[in-house]
Measured scan of single mutants.
Amino acid sequence: PKDQAKKEIEKALRNGDEEKAKRLAKKYGISDDDWKELKKRVS
């Protein structure tokens, strides 16, 4: 599910692991808009 994916990506971003977050986003098909939203929430 997308919500689970977003949680994992957000966690990776919080850990400062943007490479992992990007890989997860690609793997789960997270859209650019969702990606920006996640980045905003974390920063």
Results as ranks from 00 to 15, higher is better:
29 G>T: 04
24 L>E: 02
3 D>M: 08
29 G>I: 03
4 Q>G: 10
7 K>T: 09
33 D>H: 10
35 W>E: 01
26 K>Q: 11
22 K>E: 08
4 Q>M: 11
23 R>D: 12
16 G>S: 04
13 L>F: 04
11 K>V: 13
22 K>W: 15
5 A>N: 07
23 R>V: 11
34 D>A: 06
39 K>G: 02
10 E>R: 04
8 E>D: 08
8 E>L: 12
18 E>P: 04
28 Y>V: 03
5 A>L: 10
41 R>W: 12
25 A>T: 03
16 G>T: 02
24 L>Y: 03
18 E>Q: 05
19 E>W: 08
20 K>A: 12
15 N>R: 11
42 V>T: 06
43 S>G: 13
17 D>N: 11
10 E>D: 03
26 K>M: 12
24 L>C: 02
6 K>A: 10
42 V>Q: 04
7 K>Q: 13
42 V>H: 07
32 D>R: 07
13 L>G: 00
6 K>C: 08
5 A>G: 08
32 D>W: 13
1 P>G: 13
30 I>V: 07
2 K>D: 14
33 D>M: 06
8 E>Q: 09
2 K>W: 13
11 K>R: 13
16 G>F: 05
23 R>H: 11
18 E>S: 05
4 Q>V: 11
32 D>E: 13
37 E>M: 05
27 K>T: 08
15 N>C: 06
13 L>E: 00
24 L>I: 07
40 K>L: 11
11 K>S: 11
10 E>S: 06
23 R>Q: 13
26 K>R: 10
30 I>H: 01
9 I>E: 00
39 K>H: 06
1 P>H: 12
7 K>N: 11
38 L>T: 02
39 K>S: 05
33 D>E: 14
10 E>T: 07
8 E>S: 06
6 K>Y: 15
42 V>C: 07
13 L>K: 00
41 R>E: 14
15 N>K: 10
33 D>V: 06
8 E>V: 07
19 E>L: 10
15 N>D: 14
5 A>S: 06
21 A>G: 04
14 R>S: 04
5 A>M: 11
30 I>G: 00
17 D>A: 05
17 D>W: 14
25 A>V: 08
2 K>G: 14
40 K>M: 08
11 K>D: 14
32 D>G: 07
11 K>A: 14
40 K>N: 15
43 S>Q: 15
7 K>I: 12
36 K>C: 10
9 I>P: 00
22 K>H: 09
27 K>C: 06
28 Y>M: 04
31 S>V: 03
25 A>H: 02
37 E>F: 03
9 I>H: 00
9 I>S: 00
11 K>N: 13
12 A>R: 02
16 G>K: 06
6 K>Q: 10
2 K>T: 14
37 E>A: 07
30 I>D: 00
25 A>L: 03
1 P>C: 06
35 W>D: 00
27 K>S: 07
30 I>F: 08
25 A>P: 00
39 K>L: 15
12 A>E: 06
4 Q>W: 13
16 G>P: 01
32 D>V: 08
8 E>W: 11
42 V>S: 04
29 G>S: 07
39 K>T: 07
13 L>R: 00
39 K>E: 09
38 L>Q: 01
28 Y>Q: 02
10 E>H: 04
35 W>C: 01
4 Q>S: 10
27 K>A: 10
12 A>P: 01
38 L>H: 01
10 E>N: 03
35 W>R: 01
14 R>P: 00
7 K>R: 13
33 D>K: 10
24 L>N: 01
28 Y>A: 06
25 A>Q: 06
26 K>H: 10
34 D>W: 05
41 R>M: 15
35 W>L: 15
34 D>G: 03
40 K>W: 11
23 R>I: 12
11 K>C: 12
1 P>A: 12
42 V>D: 02
39 K>Q: 09
42 V>W: 06
9 I>Y: 01
3 D>H: 11
9 I>K: 00
11 K>P: 00
34 D>K: 02
15 N>V: 09
36 K>M: 12
30 I>T: 02
26 K>T: 11
35 W>Q: 02
26 K>P: 00
25 A>E: 00
37 E>R: 05
3 D>K: 08
3 D>F: 10
20 K>H: 14
24 L>D: 02
34 D>C: 05
38 L>W: 04
16 G>V: 02
28 Y>E: 03
8 E>P: 01
22 K>S: 06
8 E>C: 05
36 K>G: 05
28 Y>F: 09
20 K>W: 12
23 R>E: 12
32 D>S: 07
24 L>Q: 02
33 D>L: 07
34 D>S: 03
28 Y>D: 02
8 E>R: 08
21 A>E: 00
30 I>S: 01
6 K>P: 03
37 E>N: 04
13 L>Q: 01
24 L>A: 02
15 N>F: 09
5 A>W: 13
41 R>G: 15
40 K>G: 07
36 K>P: 01
29 G>C: 05
6 K>N: 08
34 D>F: 03
10 E>V: 12
11 K>I: 13
13 L>Y: 02
26 K>E: 12
11 K>W: 12
32 D>C: 06
19 E>S: 08
41 R>D: 09
1 P>N: 14
43 S>I: 10
22 K>N: 05
15 N>T: 09
3 D>R: 08
30 I>N: 00
17 D>S: 04
42 V>R: 01
3 D>N: 09
13 L>D: 00
12 A>F: 09
26 K>W: 08
19 E>Y: 08
41 R>P: 05
33 D>Q: 10
12 A>Q: 04
41 R>N: 15
32 D>P: 08
1 P>L: 14
42 V>G: 04
18 E>N: 06
3 D>V: 08
11 K>E: 13
2 K>S: 15
41 R>T: 15
19 E>P: 08
12 A>W: 12
1 P>I: 12
7 K>E: 12
1 P>Q: 12
25 A>G: 03
40 K>V: 06
35 W>P: 00
8 E>G: 03
6 K>T: 14
40 K>T: 08
34 D>N: 03
36 K>W: 14
40 K>A: 13
22 K>C: 06
17 D>F: 14
9 I>G: 00
8 E>H: 07
18 E>W: 08
23 R>Y: 13
10 E>F: 10
28 Y>S: 03
38 L>V: 05
8 E>N: 06
29 G>E: 08
32 D>F: 09
3 D>I: 08
33 D>S: 10
26 K>L: 12
20 K>L: 14
19 E>H: 08
27 K>W: 12
31 S>D: 05
13 L>H: 01
8 E>F: 06
39 K>R: 07
43 S>P: 12
25 A>N: 01
32 D>Y: 11
7 K>F: 10
19 E>D: 10
38 L>D: 01
22 K>I: 13
15 N>Y: 08
20 K>S: 11
16 G>L: 04
14 R>I: 06
17 D>C: 08
21 A>N: 00
31 S>N: 07
9 I>M: 03
6 K>F: 15
38 L>I: 15
10 E>M: 15
14 R>W: 06
34 D>I: 05
15 N>Q: 14
12 A>L: 15
35 W>S: 01
1 P>E: 12
10 E>I: 15
18 E>I: 08
35 W>G: 00
30 I>Q: 01
17 D>T: 03
20 K>T: 12
31 S>Y: 02
39 K>P: 02
21 A>C: 00
15 N>A: 14
37 E>P: 01
2 K>A: 13
19 E>G: 08
10 E>K: 04
34 D>R: 02
2 K>V: 13
25 A>M: 04
5 A>V: 11
4 Q>E: 13
36 K>T: 10
17 D>R: 06
12 A>M: 11
10 E>W: 08
17 D>V: 02
23 R>N: 10
38 L>M: 10
7 K>W: 13
20 K>V: 09
4 Q>Y: 12
17 D>K: 06
2 K>Q: 14
37 E>Q: 05
22 K>T: 06
16 G>Y: 04
31 S>R: 03
38 L>S: 02
21 A>F: 00
31 S>E: 04
14 R>A: 06
18 E>V: 07
40 K>R: 13
27 K>P: 01
27 K>V: 09
9 I>D: 00
7 K>H: 10
18 E>K: 04
20 K>M: 11
41 R>S: 15
38 L>P: 01
36 K>Q: 14
13 L>V: 02
7 K>L: 13
5 A>T: 05
11 K>F: 11
31 S>A: 04
33 D>A: 13
12 A>G: 01
41 R>K: 15
31 S>I: 03
2 K>E: 13
39 K>I: 15
4 Q>C: 09
13 L>P: 00
33 D>W: 04
31 S>C: 03
21 A>Y: 01
41 R>I: 15
12 A>S: 05
22 K>M: 13
31 S>H: 04
16 G>E: 03
37 E>K: 05
29 G>Q: 11
40 K>S: 09
2 K>M: 14
43 S>M: 13
5 A>F: 13
26 K>N: 09
1 P>T: 12
29 G>N: 11
15 N>E: 14
5 A>R: 08
26 K>Y: 09
15 N>P: 00
22 K>L: 15
30 I>P: 00
28 Y>R: 01
3 D>E: 13
3 D>C: 09
30 I>E: 00
17 D>E: 13
37 E>D: 06
